[in-house]
């Protein structure tokens, strides 16, 4: 497990395939075309991927008080509910706050760990890396239950601190992966060059290392933010009437109240996350064009 973890952190599958020499495709196509039925299958699978997302947006303009589809009428009523009702606004604010703080914490400790692990080799370092990645393969429900039982004792259930700490832990692997991959393209000779020019280590870090890995850090921070912002399972266990996040309120609106405001909330969240992902894409392209 440990070895596999290591070589993948540094290069995702895409990069590896991209480096392979391209085979002449055009000539093959004549001899070996993609059959028509396969094209249809792929189109249908593609629809299966996209379709559910598309249902959310028309629902958000409905005037009905149920989840009926096709939606009835056209209005901004649900958006008005979302942005004026105290429960929804409060949950949205809590979610943003939790995600910001959790992403900050995860980014700081995750970046430090990635920098440390970059210089360390051996069995123990590999074990630490695996341990830090473990929350990614642990089922969320197992984490949620264990964290809930302990947090009850530590009085962290239903508090900002509890949410931030729990979400920071699940955000660390994302930061670790993206910073490690940024460090992979980093030339260690630069550090020696900087030192030989008389820069103390902290200055080398601020002026040489940081600018070069900053995109990796930003990417990791955005992943950590989105992961926390969208996290439901742990949030459901840590909720209290005093403090809950937006996904929890959305969960309530489906299970407890039948409140179609969730359609507006879903659209807002989907659009917000898409924008963040586009930012990420933009960060990625700028790196390539250099």
């Amino acid at each position: 497990m440990t070895t596999a973890l290591r070589d993948t952190d540094t290069e995702p599958a895409e990069v590896r395939t991209a480096r392979r020499p391209r085979r002449p495709r055009r000539r093959e196509r004549g001899v070996d075309p993609i059959p028509w039925w396969l094209r249809i299958v792929v189109a249908l699978v593609g629809l299966y991927f996209i379709l559910p997302t598309l249902f959310v947006i028309p629902m958000s303009f409905s005037t009905a008080t149920t989840f009926q589809f096709p939606p009835k009428g056209f209005s901004f009523q649900l958006y008005e509910n979302f942005f004026t009702h105290k429960v929804w606004l409060q949950s949205l604010r809590n979610s943003v706050l939790v995600a910001l703080l959790a992403a900050l914490l995860a980014t700081v400790v995750g970046t430090a760990a990635a920098l440390g692990l970059h210089h360390l080799t051996g069995r123990l370092a590999r074990l630490v890396r695996t341990l830090l990645m473990i929350s990614i393969v642990t089922p969320a429900i197992v984490i949620a239950v264990a964290v809930y039982i302990s947090f009850l004792k530590w009085h962290l259930v239903g508090s900002l601190g509890g949410y931030v700490l729990a979400h920071a832990v699940i955000g660390v692997p994302f930061v670790l992966v993206s910073v490690t991959s940024a460090l992979g393209g980093f030339d260690p000779k630069l550090l020696r060059a900087s030192a030989s020019l008389g820069a103390p280590p902290w200055r080398t870090f601020l002026r040489v290392t940081m600018p070069l890995i900053s995109r990796g850090i930003v990417t990791g921070a955005i992943f950590a933010f989105v992961t926390s912002f969208d996290e439901v399972v742990i949030a459901l266990f840590l909720r209290s009437p005093r403090f809950q996040t937006l996904p929890v309120q959305m969960y309530n609106s489906v299970t407890v109240e039948i409140d179609p405001t969730i359609a507006a909330s879903s659209s807002v969240v989907v659009i917000a996350v898409t924008v963040l992902c586009l930012v990420l894409q933009f960060v990625g392209t700028r790196r390539k064009s250099r």
Binding site: P52, T53, V56, D230, V232, V269, V273, T274, C277
Partner: peptide, 11 residues
């Protein structure tokens, strides 16, 4: 990319 709750709601 789609939020967990948005997707489940859609389903």
């Amino acid at each position: 990319w789609t939020s967990v709750m948005a997707r489940n709601f859609a389903w």
